[in-house]
Every structure is written in structure tokens, then in C-alpha cells.
């Protein structure tokens, strides 16, 4: 393993013993369990120190281990933005699409090859702003997609502009005197549109998030998992909320697990309580089941199920 601990780097160039190298004796390299899901040659990634996206990818990888899913039947689609970069860092069949269009591309993948497990991994700006229409329509049609929305409350990659999820009274580069627009309550939005599985966690809840992702893999239909994630560089810094570690402590202090909470009550404020948990878990026929039922009913024997697509 080339990138295991390099003890040479730990030797103090100045020669004083500020560091006890005995304590850093990690010469036996241990493979990180998530390593096989990553494109190690592309590490370290571009995300800022303390950015929560890496933690969500970590939980996602652990959910893949836990659910023992066949990686050959898995496709990951992401849009544009900080979270959009996930597609480039995972060693899975992944697709980095145009801005806001992760769900349409994923829908196409699912329709062409219904056996695929399609995961949409994107940010709040990509999914709920430019891709907002696709989000609600995919939820309405109940297309069998697992959507992981990493919500850092801001447009981070482009310089910290106000996003539809930015809470009231926070300061952003486009609202230097404070945001006055009401923000989206994403779990409420997708539940109203028809999602069958809706959950919200923060990057503090790593184990719960991994469990939630494995649960979503077992559901058939539109699953939506929102992950509140720190953005130390743009959101926290501009709002004088400290660094990423402060954000994690804030999540620990302010988050309250309420499974099955009515999604209308889980809206976020800048400093208030963050309600997390599994809000919706229901059954509804998915798009392809409804399509098949409709065609069988109206066409009878003339309906021929599309055969499996073979890529040559």
C-alpha cells in the first residue's frame, strides 16, 4: 500500500522532540474498509478541511458494505457542485452530469435498465434549485431512485450565494444584509410530492445515516435522504459560526431525533433545533410497476415487456 503512513514524514526536520514518534508507530498498514469504494489515485479530494461531504461518502460506503449490495448493479449519478464531485471519487459506475440534471439522467438509466440500483448523490443547490422541478416530478412519479441530498445550506462551489435552503437571517455573498427569503423544507417538499422514504440526518449521525441508506436500498420507489453538512469555508465563516468542528458540536447539541415527525414541522432555522430521523416510510407502486399495470390493462396481450438492454 503506497499511501499508508509514511514514518519519514513524521520525523521532525528540526530535530527536537516535539513529537513522540513511538506513539505514531503505525508501521503495520491496515486497509481502510472504505478504500475499495474510492478512487485512491484521486485522493486527497478537493473538499475543504472539515467539509462534511467526505463523511457522507464514508457513511455511504459503509452502507454499501452493510447492505452487501452487488456493486455491478449499482450506478451513482451526481450533478454539479461540491457534492457533484462525489461521482469522481467513488470507484463505482458513476456519472457526473450537467447542473441540476442528475435526476433526469438517473431516470433514463433506470428506465433503460430496470435492474440497476440507481443512486443520485448531489447537493441541495443542484437538486432543489436548478433541479427542483426534476426532484418533485421524480417523487411524483415514484421512480425507483435513491436520492442522497447533501445539504450544506449554501451554494458552496460558486462562492457562497443564497440557495433555496439557506436559513433566514444568515449572511451570504448575495445577501450581505441577511437572507429574508423563506427557505425550502426539503423533507416536506418531497413527501408532499410523493416520496416513499424520507429521512434527514446530519454528518454527526454517521451510523444512523449509514443505516438509513441501507434501508433505502431495500425500498422500491423514490427514497430521499437529506444530510445536513457543515460548510466551514462559506457558510460558517461568513456567519461567524466557527469551523467545521463547531458545526459538528452544534449538530450534536441541537439535533433531536424524532422518527415519524410530521415533515411540516421539520423546517430549519439558523440556530434552532434540527429535527432528524426517518420521517416517511410508506408503500406506493413505483413508476415501472404502474406503467406495466396500465399497459397490461389497456393493451392486453399486445403488451410486450421490454427485454433487458445489452450494452455492446
Amino acid at each position: 500500500m503506497t499511501d499508508c503512513l509514511n514514518t519519514d514524514l513524521l520525523d521532525d526536520p528540526l530535530g527536537d522532540d516535539r513529537l513522540n514518534t513511538d506513539l505514531l508507530d503505525n508501521s503495520i498498514s491496515v486497509e481502510n474498509p472504505v478504500e475499495r469504494f474510492l478512487r485512491s489515485d484521486r485522493m486527497p479530494h478537493i473538499w475543504c478541511p472539515g467539509c462534511g461531504i467526505g463523511t457522507t461518502v464514508n457513511s455511504f460506503a459503509r452502507a454499501l458494505i452493510e447492505s452487501k449490495i452487488d456493486l455491478g448493479s449499482l450506478a451513482l449519478v451526481s450533478g454539479i457542485g461540491c457534492t457533484g464531485r462525489v461521482a469522481g471519487y467513488v470507484k463505482l459506475d458513476s456519472f457526473h452530469t450537467t447542473h441540476g440534471r442528475a435526476i433526469p439522467f438517473a431516470t433514463g438509466l433506470k428506465l433503460a435498465n430496470p435492474k440497476l440500483n440507481v443512486v443520485v448523490y448531489s447537493g441541495d443547490g443542484d437538486l432543489s434549485a436548478i433541479g427542483g422541478n426534476h426532484l418533485i416530478h421524480a417523487a411524483r412519479r415514484n421512480i425507483d431512485l435513491k436520492v442522497i441530498c447533501v445539504n450544506n445550506l449554501i451554494y458552496a462551489m460558486t462562492g457562497g450565494q443564497t440557495a433555496p435552503t439557506t436559513p433566514d437571517h444568515s449572511t451570504t455573498s448575495t445577501n450581505p444584509y441577511g437572507v429574508f427569503e423563506p427557505s425550502f423544507n426539503l423533507p416536506h417538499l418531497v413527501e408532499a410530492a410523493g416520496a416513499v422514504y424520507v429521512a434527514r440526518w446530519t454528518t454527526f449521525h454517521v451510523r444512523q445515516l449509514a443505516r438509513s441508506i441501507s434501508e433505502a436500498f431495500k425500498k422500491k420507489g423514490f427514497s430521499f435522504i437529506e444530510v445536513i453538512s457543515p460548510c466551514p469555508t462559506l457558510y460558517q465563516r461568513r456567519n461567524k459560526m466557527g469551523d467545521a468542528l463547531d458545526a459538528m458540536k452544534f449538530y450534536k447539541e441541537k439535533s433531536k431525533i424524532r422518527h415519524g415527525a410530521p415533515t411540516s414541522e421539520v423546517g430549519m432555522t439558523m440556530t434552532g433545533e434540527i429535527i432528524v430521523g426517518k420521517f416517511v416510510d410508506r408503500e406506493r407502486p413505483d413508476y415501472q410497476t404502474m406503467m406495466k399495470a396500465q399497459y397490461t390493462e389497456s393493451l392486453g396481450e399486445r403488451f410486450v415487456e421490454p427485454t433487458e438492454m445489452v450494452c455492446s
Binding site: C4, N26, I28, G50, T55, L245, M248
Partner: peptide
Amino acid sequence: GRVSIVVERCKACGFCVEFCPSHVLALSST
């Protein structure tokens, strides 16, 4: 257990130090 650290990937966010239940870790000075 045993901790294994890839020093070159670390960005010193301090999450591991803060959330280790048995307080095994600390940020080093190098």
C-alpha cells in the same frame, strides 16, 4: 484496537480527536 492514519490525506479537521469515545487521539505538532 489499533488506529491507522494516512498522514498525507489528513486535513486536520479534528473530528476524530473530538469524537473518539475513549480519547485516544490528539492533533500532533508536526
